[in-house]
Computed example of a mutant assay.
Amino acid sequence: MKTLSGKLEQLLLRAVDNEEIAGANILILKEGKEIAYAQAGYADRAEKKFYERDTIARLYSMTKPVTAAAAMLLMERGLLDPGGFVEDFLPGFHNASVAEGKGRTPARRPMRICELLNMTSGLVYGGDTTSISSIETEKLFHKVSERLLGKDALTTVEIANSLGLVPLAFHPGDSWQYGASADVLGAVIEIISGVPFGEFLKKEFFEPLGMKDTAFHVPQEKQERLAKVYERTPDGLILYADSHLGVPNAMAQPPAFESGGAGLVSTLDDYEKFASMLLAEGSYAGGQIIKPQTVRYMTQAELLPWQQDVLEQGWEGLSGHTYANLLRIVTQPGKACMMTTKGEYGWDGWLGAYFANSPKDKLTMLLTFQLKDAGTTSLTRRLKNTVWSELC
């Protein structure tokens, strides 16, 4: 009988052989102990560098749970009020407007910080050519990318203030849409803490947790461990080297823009420390990073009914879930399109990084690969179903 590690390895090898991915690794923990690990394929196909346990991956949106935890830490210290207004910290959000037809209308009220945490702010991402909000956001991030590594590169706070000038897709609180909220939240955290966002994360999370490979860039001495990014084409996988959402592909130098929504790199073992800390209600290696009640607030929240309706109608892959505090949270396992347990939470990333914690099962799953436009893929679901069917 194959071990769980062997089953997962076979699934990864098949995905590599079928050119679903170039390479990947996966780590499973139960009750705080490693149960399974598997890897397959290449981090760099041209150089024949294997995808290893210490391979560094771009997290993209799996950055968001870290940003949420930072906000929770400031909240428990009495420094951040989720009900407070974004415009009190970022003047670009004064007199915010909402797209209406071909014009704008004033927002009915200021945006609240909790609406950044829940993606109910009206901020969006680019890519939707039918939405003025999305078109203007796309233009802004194009400008960010043009100036990405130059002397005039836009900073975290400058970008957040610029997002405040873009017309919102809806009045704050009226609906739900995935977008640039976490980038604005990162800027709010920077302003409240009085230090650069990345410095705050390093001091409060990465150093106490021993996350030595997690940062907003990859220094020269670690560059050989950074996986290449690939994209699928009719002719198979090809190298993808463009930047996306203001995050440089090479990750070679400290960026002016420390994206709270997409900017971190990490390894399986590093992110496991963060995930395990949350699963242990904020404790790690005898220390308390966040208080238990804060973790419970972070991981047990829900959208309001009308916001939940929009989520369920617009994002099929999140059936059975709510979304709050920059996390997907399982509320009705029977509606989900893969095996899960009520109360499970986590998120994924644009290039395929995936994270799930199940408090009921005391189970953590972490997966990384680097594939353009991935998110939660069929491979991710097949791997997760294998894990949950064996351990839950």
Rank of each mutant, 00 (worst) to 15 (best):
F274E: 01
T322D: 02
T364W: 05
I329H: 03
T322S: 03
D270Q: 10
E344W: 08
D270Y: 02
L366N: 09
A256L: 09
L311H: 07
A356E: 12
P255L: 04
Q332F: 08
Q332H: 14
T267L: 03
Q308P: 07
N325W: 03
S259I: 02
T364H: 09
H244L: 08
M338K: 06
D348P: 02
F355I: 05
A301E: 07
E258L: 03
A285V: 01
D270V: 01
A275Y: 00
P255F: 02
L318H: 14
W347A: 04
S319P: 07
M251R: 03
G320M: 01
A252F: 13
Q300P: 06
L366Q: 08
G261E: 03
A353Q: 09
W315V: 14
P359S: 10
G346M: 04
A262D: 02
D270K: 02
A262E: 07
F257G: 00
Q300A: 15
Q313L: 12
Q253S: 13
K362C: 03
G320A: 03
Q332E: 15
P255D: 05
S358N: 05
E258D: 06
G317E: 14
L264I: 00
N325Q: 01
K362E: 12
K342T: 12
S266W: 02
N357R: 02
L311S: 04
K360W: 13
K360Y: 09
L264N: 02
E312P: 09
L279F: 04
Q288E: 05
G314M: 15
N249Y: 05
A285I: 00
C337F: 14
M277V: 01
A252I: 11
T341L: 05
Q307I: 08
M277D: 02
A353K: 11
L304C: 06
L366I: 09
I290D: 06
I329L: 08
Y354A: 06
E272A: 14
L366G: 03
L327D: 02
S358M: 11
Q307F: 09
Y345H: 04
A262R: 07
G317P: 07
G334Q: 10
V265W: 05
T340Y: 06
E312M: 11
V265R: 03
S283H: 06
P292R: 12
G343P: 09
D361C: 13
L327S: 02
Q313K: 14
A275S: 10
L279P: 00
D269V: 01
E344G: 07
Q307P: 05
A252H: 14
G320T: 04
T364R: 14
S358L: 08
H244F: 12
P333N: 04
G261W: 05
P248W: 09
L327N: 09
Y323W: 02
L264G: 00
K291E: 10
M298A: 07
Q253K: 14
H321W: 06
V310L: 01
P333H: 01
V265H: 10
N325V: 00
W315I: 15
W350M: 10
A256I: 11
A353W: 01
A336L: 10
A250V: 10
H321R: 13
Y297K: 13
G286A: 00
S319I: 11
Q307M: 06
